[in-house]
Design a protein around this nucleic acid. Sequence first.
DNA 1: CGAGGTCGTGTAATCGATTACATCGATCTT
DNA 2: AAGATCGATGTAATCGATTACACGACCTCG
Lengths: 357, 357
Amino acid sequence: MDERGTTVRARTLAGAGAASDAAPVAPARITDVARLAEVSTATVSRVLAHPERVAPGTRARVEEAVARLGWVPNPAARTLRSQKTRMVLVVLPDLENVFFSRILRGIEETLAAAGYGMIIADLGPASPRAGALAAFARRQVDGVILLNGRRLGPEAEDMPTIALCETIPGAAIPQIAIDNRAAARRVVAHLVGLGHRRIAHLAGPEGNVLEIERAAGYEDGLRDAGLAPDPALVWPGDYTLEAGVAAASRLLPGPGSAPERPTAVFASNDTMAIGLVGALQEAGLAVPDDVSVAGFDDIEFAAMYRPALTTVRQPRRDLGRVAAEAMLARLAGREASAEGPLATELVVRASTGPARR
Amino acid sequence: MDERGTTVRARTLAGAGAASDAAPVAPARITDVARLAEVSTATVSRVLAHPERVAPGTRARVEEAVARLGWVPNPAARTLRSQKTRMVLVVLPDLENVFFSRILRGIEETLAAAGYGMIIADLGPASPRAGALAAFARRQVDGVILLNGRRLGPEAEDMPTIALCETIPGAAIPQIAIDNRAAARRVVAHLVGLGHRRIAHLAGPEGNVLEIERAAGYEDGLRDAGLAPDPALVWPGDYTLEAGVAAASRLLPGPGSAPERPTAVFASNDTMAIGLVGALQEAGLAVPDDVSVAGFDDIEFAAMYRPALTTVRQPRRDLGRVAAEAMLARLAGREASAEGPLATELVVRASTGPARR
DNA sequence: CGAGGTCGTGTAATCGATTACATCGATCTT
DNA sequence: AAGATCGATGTAATCGATTACACGACCTCG
């Protein structure tokens, strides 16, 4: 009879007090509840899963017993039997990127309210761990929310999956995101409104979905103003601070600088924008007096930075919430109601100003 | 016989290829492995848990079968039977605080190498969710690493617990941290070395363990230099950006300013230091020419900021690693080897400079 | 040569829930 | 009034592993 066997388990039936006298008390089991309520375990289980199928009187007795014992179904047993884990995996490209934390909160809140837990996996864009993670996911979670723009691998191919922010073109799964293109277009419109005519774009990594959309929006914005896109004004970048720093040289006099220097730059994210601004200041240029710089994302630092950064605020908590809701719908067998992209907000701060005469 | 019953399960015995023709393939079970290796399930299980008790030939057969089928033990079944989840819970006060992300990585790497998973819970300093979390922890994890300086509650009282960074005075659990006091002392010594004599301290929240230590180190540093601590130079704060901004007024001429204004400030964290520097610059004071400012933590932003911040670097990844190792030791029944506090590094950047003559 | 070991393996109980099916009394149908 | 139907509940199989104990083969030693 193994370790525990039929010996009586340490247990305090105390409804309230008694939490103090410790001594490892084994958690209540369904049989304890059944005995106390004088019903079978099947009935106890039914009270949770299908309350309407249990007579009101019986249900009340069971509920009282559950409360008295503080019983919570053993998740391992439940998972084993029902093949449902009540957990969702969230895959990030980089946990250190502050952009994600608030999204995570939105997801977590929503899932928790539905009785689901969240497991976070921090996976680089092309980590070798992806395979192991897929295998893990198969057993440990009911669904996957991807924030890294990459499917997890064949092992997890057939499980409920949702792409968030970094959409996955062509994948037949719900995709939740903002309208990057429209937002970028608005940034450019803002700059144009300030009188800028030569506006550069500091790009994200080539091929990145977000970058493709933001670049398209940038061109839209130029066209709206009757300006011709100029390839010399689209500068390569990769979302890192260093890329921003490097781009500064193009604005300074000397070799490598753009022939006709732009008066404003739209950077594809805040981190690059900050790198750029810092390097410009170091070199003696004033922002926004000499050059205006706008970013994208509205990370916490954007407001803290001097000059405070003009940028696009993403509804991060809502993005998380909506993705989680889509996942819950999917898990409940409902079709996820297809909402359009979420609204963004242009936040005008101190890093953009009137074009220099 | 329920849903699945005795029907033959969809399964491909393919060792390699064949991953393409999808159709939800049920994962292999221990009985599948046993059948293929022509042994009992007990033997299969033993190959994993106690390989030395299995004859080499048999072991090889089993291992080959495991590999062929790609079998991974069902975690729910394993947990149910063994009462071990192979998961560790990490409790944070605030996931949005960038300070934690690298620590998390250190923890995760170390745990993963030992076959453990990590679950993150984002809990405010005094969240009502703590109770629910404790109940969750009881069933879902084998141990808890606390980064928020608070025990989880009676439910989780008797499980392996480790405090990290924010220690919990008096708790009889392993505590991993840096020597905040010594580090603060070194910051002050650095400022003294630059010629500063009036050095203020922008404090953290009252009662916070970290603040208590850092404040003590600040006084140590002053005493080392033969300077008398002056209560008027210890300014209240709470680790937020706003607290830093607010503190700036004390350095500016006008009402509320310190009588004899300090030439340097040691802030208890980087966020406050940045708030302070930003507000000072806004008000026309130069950093470090007029005032030197040092922070603590070396968050990513510290290096990005202009002027780049002088601060104390914590070995974040190592903190995570060491805590995880202590947890693994505890879970394996070994006593955690009591190391002392981890070493920090003073990072001198541009926000501190010689005292003004 | 037989008692007592050791070694390798199998049998079956067990972890704690869920749920198909059986059962049983009460109500409805014609 | 006999049979059908329905609602409430119990019985027991089941999920997939772990592991105490049993067993048989072989070895050792007095």
